[in-house]
Design a protein around this nucleic acid. Sequence first.
DNA 1: AGCACGCCGACT
DNA 2: GTCGGCGTGCTC
Length: 821
Amino acid sequence: MFADVILPLALPKLYTYQIPDGMKVEPGMRVVVQFGKRRKYAAIIKRIHDEPPAAYAVKPVLSKLDEYPVVWPHQLHFWEWIARYYACTEGEVMNVAIPAHLKLSSETIIQLDPAYADETSIAVLASQLTDEAFQIVEALAVRHELSLAEVQQLLGETSYTSAQAVVKSLIDQHICVAYESIRESYRPRLETYILLSPAYAEEQALHQLFDQLEKAPRQLQILMKFYELREKQGWVRKKDLLEQAEASHAQLKALVDKGIFQEIKQTVDRIAFTYDGAIQQLHLTPSQQTCVQQIHDWFKEKRVVLLHGVTSSGKTLIYVSLILEAIAKGEQVLYLLPEIALTAQMIRRLQQYLGNQVGVYHSRLSHNERVEMWNKVREGSLQVIVGSRSALWLPFCRLSLIIVDEEHDMSFKQQDPAPRYHARDAAIYYAHLLHARVILGSATPAVETYQQAMQGKYGYVMLKERYGQIALPDMILADMRTIPRQHRGERHITPLLEDHIRRTLQQHKQVILFQNRRGYAPSQICQVCGWVPHCEQCDVALTYHKSIHQLVCHYCGRKYPPVTQCQACGSHAIIHKSFGTERIEDELHTLFPKASIARMDLDTMRKKDSYHQLIHRFEQGRIDILVGTQMVVKGLDFDSVGLVGILLADSLLNYPDFRVNERAFQLMEQVSGRAGRKGEKGMVVIQAYQLRHPVLAHVMAHDYAAFFQMEIEARAHFQYPPFTRLMKIVLKHAQQEKVVEAAHLLAGELTDKFPGQITGPAAPLVSRIRNEYLQEILIRLPRSAHKLQEQKDTIVDICNQLQQQSSFRHVRMIVDVDPMG
DNA sequence: AGCACGCCGACT
DNA sequence: GTCGGCGTGCTC
Ligand SMILES: [Zn+2]
Ligand SMILES: [Zn+2]
């Protein structure tokens, strides 16, 4: 029999190995195989068959690593679909899908040849070998074994030749021997427990023991404590006994040596499920009950339901209700959140209703913890998982519901290593495969999602009621031009915002000021109405390039002369403006010298725990004004925020990205949701130049439907999703001329094949990253599934052909299916 | 992704 | 003449 296996590498094909007679394996099990000259990997069996390959000699499966499959057959189908849809290899999918500790690869270990076992024979080598080679021999004489990595370390930076070359010559001279070592890296956690020897089980023997220990009061004390602990919890951990009896290791060891105690090692869970609070009974309001009923009705005919609920409308309780039903039926539920930071908060809320039936899974768990969660989900002993997108890869055995909360959030799309998958979209496909259901939850649904719901492809349930009668905040626009002319450029807070901050602080309430993280898109802007020129073809904001004194479109690369007159109001007052991220703390300090001001962004939150510390300080009221980027929008459920300020809405509105409006609307709506508390109305001040921007009007009115109507028309007119599907090819190379040449060639070939579907090539806004120049090509693909896949495959072929040409071998090409920007 | 093989430049 | 640079191709 033969096994087609997936190797954890970016290889386009499966590889076939022979299964030795008597080895019992199944698809989904990990096996050790040799791949290439020496290296060994843990590969996953995808298919078992009896078709002997004719074209090559087959190598045998060396051993099996699992008694049970670590992934289910349905997962293997899912991986295959992901690889095809997102144009990557199954090996790359495997690499993101399974925990690092289930992925094994061998390392080369070297030893001295037995002929050099004694010191004299080694000493002889000193004169024959290079310094580096002899250094290795000396180290081996002491340590017996070295891995190739250790050799590299030993030679360090002083080495001119690679460790590999030195080792190879030692092996060729028969001074060293090498072998490949592959080891399981998962280590179960062991804890030592203390038992009383069976000999003392009898009462009589026990009495004798107490008498016997009369002369050893410390040991007697330990024995007494042992009884106490055993009585209390039924078992005795060594650690607890030592601590509570205040005993030393030596004293306990004496008892073990005397044969009174026995030590046993037992594997224990790393993740403690220790929620011991009261389990709350779920009470739904009438409108929430109706909502649950509506979801059930939709599920009779639809796989996916969009739950459109304004902030704090109690979406979580709806989820809890559905989770409880699934648990009762013995089924599993996956609850996906866009960011790891949100999982901790959510799990605390869910535990109030579900106790210890909930687990977390995300990439910040330790490698060993991830393996343990993996196994619990596979066995079905854990029914509910809250996690970030990586939780989608867990081996669920009875998954019946996937909840994608904050489904509009673009961080569900994986950016860098392939597969560049969208967890929401992937979850919907996975649910099809498993006959499971999906709930997409959001206050501001993604345009694509809402469109599907409006067309009847998804069920749609709206939850209007605001929980606890929290009123929507008052919305105020502040004109940036009210900053006195002489202070323009140095001041960024309008008199109106300043006034509202002052009043809020006087009422001892807190202020959050939002600043956009994506900074710096230099553009032209009308000073009178705030109009910004857009590309006629792509509908994205044009960027002003000072060096060439031209406006550039970052999608199609088209250049325009600078505008001199506003196309909206006719004014000639056009200026250049960069919507960057200003450090406004100094300004705040000057305006409010007594207020305590803190900043929350990726840079200041880099240190471990600084995030939680800051939140804690804010909750305690020790921070008056919190300035932050996107981080302050997500996740935090602060209670006493009186005012939220958006420092410069234009920085959200002018980014060259076809989704800007969607992003801006979602962000401003979400920021607004932070203002206010139970019973008290909050306030939101939006500072902007473009006061008449349509997105702002919809935000002011909290009118999602109107926003959607406007946006969907633009998407239709400019042929963006959901009316087409997009594919982006990013080319990277250290030399600008090289990427530009490759990009133009590629775009040319693509245009031949798919006329009218290609935009670009063009340099993106950030055109150089880590010493590499970038070029991007955008391709519009049809919506119908079979044509789509066909065209995708052709595009990948064209890319590979170009890559094959020796002059472009070093141009990196990254294919991004359904890109976010 | 490794790893080996193979073909050209600067050194013994 | 050799050593070693890395460009090219393959791995069941
Ligand atoms: Zn104007
Ligand atoms: Zn354009």
